[in-house]
Write a protein that binds this DNA or RNA. Structure first.
Lengths: 133, 133
DNA sequence: TTACCTGCAAATGATTTGCAGATTT
DNA sequence: AAATCTGCAAATCATTTGCAGGTAA
């Protein structure tokens, strides 16, 4: 991180405190406001974009929304990380699994494509909602 | 399709003529204009949304853009369909593969989640660009 | 005839940008 | 001091909506 400001650090810290969550820019704003850390929306957009460029967080846009989400990248990244999105209750389940790794190997070997990051989302009905039917 | 208008049919036909492509609303507009079929942007948004609701086409938003894409759904759908997106040249490769099917089975069985549709994208460097380096 | 459509132009929502002053290196 | 930042307000871009006719069932 060549340039470091209080605001940028504040934003990054928030991601560290929310390792397992996706945050929209608006959620970031609200969470920071609640902590008494006031960072303007424009700055959040700018820093979040930069953090994504620097590879510290990852940008994700789901098909059923118009807002971008951001999430901190851990060393194992999204390489073995799935999203299960319930179409009924909207719940987002993070699922860690070896299956993606298998695919990545397959793609590298059989399709000669070097994978840097992945996005794997499944839309459907979650356990709870299946029960409730 | 309970209600059918010339415009809606025109749009659906365009998707049929472009089975293998993702189209943005703007691309649809341009392609229709070129064919002398004038459908307003607002109508395209409305019909494309409806077609997606009806399950005839599918909405996709990639992480590196702010525009939604739409693509016709074939009977085998996106259940065994991957996206490989080259971060260097921007190329989008469609890849049909059994691997997704394996995962879907795994999710249903081991995670008790009924999958209706999937979104599997890998970002990285394609064969051509690997060679060019 | 009634329900739903169309195009247009105005409205909305998310994101970006220009600018003047502040902070980091 | 120079580079890059910040907040604010205005601008932009994609998408949505209200309305006054038009078309499909």
């Amino acid at each position: 991180m060549k340039y470091k400001t209080k605001q940028k650090q504040t934003i990054l810290d928030l991601f560290k405190d929310n390792e397992d969550r996706h945050l929209t820019v608006e959620e970031i704003k609200t969470l920071l406001d609640e902590k008494g850390e006031n960072v303007s929306i424009a700055t959040i957009y700018r820093r979040v974009d930069e953090l994504a460029q620097e590879g510290l967080i990852q940008k994700i846009v789901f098909d059923n929304t118009s807002k971008a989400c951001y999430q901190i990248k851990s060393h194992d990244d999204c390489m073995n990380h799935f999203h299960l999105i319930c179409e009924k209750c909207g719940k987002l389940i993070h699922m860690d699994c070896d299956e993606v790794e298998h695919i990545v190997n397959h793609i590298s070997k059989d399709h000669n494509f070097k994978v840097n990051k992945s996005r794997v989302s499944f839309y459907g009905i979650c356990e709870d909602c299946r029960g409730n039917k």
